[in-house]
Design a protein around this nucleic acid. Structure first.
Lengths: 208, 208, 208, 208
DNA sequence: AATGAATGAGTGTTCATTCAT
DNA sequence: TATGAATGAACACTCATTCAT
């Protein structure tokens, strides 16, 4: 199995700067329109227009409509890594790390909520192999989280029960805002939701 | 706004028993095929075949492909009410009610996971008005849950913080199994996940 | 290697009489329009219109535009077999057979000249496997011809030299009308060309 | 009717040597790729690449993709004239001329078989006017041939029957190798085919 | 009430051609 | 003169929906 099958789409355009710029515009445009109307309800022309290029030009940077979806998901994961990574950097004690992890995860998902929604809704359209690659990525993300949890648990002499389930829960919970936000957005602001979630997780983590 | 716009699809067939039977078959068939391949990848003919009727006949019981989606979502909510309702029936003390609520919610979502997945993935395809009606239904479901939580909190002298968020969280959490199951299904059986979730929720609810 | 890959296209329509009728209409229509404007210059809609059905309906009887080409070629070969077959039926002596063979071949190609032109021009568009199958068919056709030539040669004590080349030449020569007709059609009528060709072949066959 | 419409394509490039060189490369490249994959299956970019220039540059030497086809056909006819011309040059007696004519024709078509195949297959794509011009050219070629035949017939007191048909046949027959070669190439080498054809023609020409 | 054939609107993708650099 | 990125017209094919039987 080659890794090639699951990497970024190829481009017929040679200038790498141009490729980066146009792809950025395409991802941003695709996130907006896919989020607003759904992947299937959008024509490639809609994305092109939103990106400020012509329909045909899209295919100089992407091999198929599905590639656009792929790039969104990829973008989301890279952003998660970036955000959680820089949240963890200054953390020294394990307690600080836990805090950073929770806050980073919440922040990442909150910030990239449109990416996230599109990913959840439409991931099943990306080709089997690629999808599997993302499952893998997501699993690694989760393991990264598990390691920190275990480390903290040991240091703080904390029982966290099944660390597999617990770490899964940590990466899962922030999607709460996205899944249910429509029901409480008017009453509670985002900051409060973040705090609520972090509190809830911390309480849930202390098992005894 | 007429209620008509958001009620079940109309049928050209007069015999109500036949209508019920065929619709049941259609819902079951649609859940299976939509779950397996996604709403857009399935043709109406696929659903018809799975339901054991011909393509044309589908339109004697349903007005559009979207109706099938609608019926699935409706079916899911009815099932939720039924399951949580009968779980709560024997409960007397508020503690028993809380227990019944959590367990019922978990059970309902676990049992109807295919309905649930299809609903999450594809709800955005159903027409604006109908979708709004479902939001309303979901909101009521959640309020029902909130009322019980508040009642219990008062009786047990428990602080549950923001009851709006908390009740939302309760109806949200069981989807954990569905969203992340792929990452732990091999290691942890379903019963354990249910217990883990119920524990976690109970712990999270005690705010002091 | 399955034979399936090279057989007639499949149809979603179950009524075999309807299938036969519509396919007949499609072949006739396709021959006309492909002959007149070329395979690539014709849209499927052109063929549909010429066949008196709608664009979408074409695909109830055919899986792709290429299938139309395939059916034309197939039709041509079947017609050849039919025509040469019935020309040979009454022939008794080997001399009569030779005569029948030459006349039948000329008649078949003359009658189905549009099929023939389309086939020559566009055969290279049909998929590798199918094309190979037709080469095979054509080769068998030619062998059938070779057998008769050899038989006659023995009976009549005739030297025909390389029978492989000679039989190839016999099936090839009638295409003369089609390839060069534009240059002499105004001066010479078809019957004369047929006689000329048959004479030429007979003369060419007597080698000594 | 202006001659302009049917002459070689115009070029934006002034340097005539460059034009000649690039066009040579383009024709050679186009013959190869059109022969291999067919005119429609080849993109202009394919030809450009095979010719060692960039896609855009093609249009400095050619006005359209069709021009490439045109140039191939033109190249073929020029080559025919050149080859038959120099074959005829040393011929003195009419018998030598006949010999030279037949051999030259066979040689020309054999040598330029790729040109020939592309021409037969794709000529119908070139615009009506230009196509007509080629018909004219081909007719002249044929007349040139007819004149020789008639001359020889008179000198040798030979009946060749309908000289229009006969001369057409002479220019037509060499395409035998190309049309049917796939069926005998493995068994008979090219030289043998050439001899077979020349024999056959000579025999066929003697009508008595 | 059931069937399945007919319809045609809708869309992803290709590629000849143009043109700014 | 050469390049290669941008363009948009064109088209095969799908499939939800209709309707005659």
């Amino acid at each position: 199995m080659t890794d090639d099958a699951v990497t970024s789409p190829t481009s017929s355009v040679k200038n790498p700067i141009l490729v980066r710029e146009r792809r950025r515009a395409l991802i941003d445009a695709a996130v907006e329109v896919f989020f607003a109307k759904g992947y299937h309800a959008c024509r490639v022309a809609d994305v092109a227009e939103a990106a400020g290029i012509s329909q045909g030009t899209v295919y100089n940077y992407v091999n198929s409509k599905e590639d656009l979806l792929f790039m969104i998901v990829e973008d989301h994961f890279l952003a998660y890594e970036r955000i959680v990574g820089s949240a963890l950097e200054p953390a020294r004690t394990s307690r600080e790390k836990l805090d950073a992890l929770l806050k980073g995860t919440v922040e990442a998902i909150f910030k990239y909520r449109k990416h996230y929604v599109v990913m959840l809704r439409e991931l099943h359209h990306v080709e089997r192999n690629r999808r599997r690659a993302f499952m893998q990525l997501a699993a690694e993300q989760r393991k990264f989280c598990e390691n920190i949890l275990v480390e903290i648990a040991e240091e703080e002499n904390l029982k966290i029960g099944n660390s597999l389930l617990m770490s899964n829960l940590v990466v899962f919970l922030p999607s709460f805002l996205i899944s249910r936000g429509w029901d409480f957005r008017k009453e509670v602001n985002e900051q409060e939701v973040a705090e609520f979630l972090i509190d809830f997780m911390e309480r849930g983590l202390r098992q005894n």
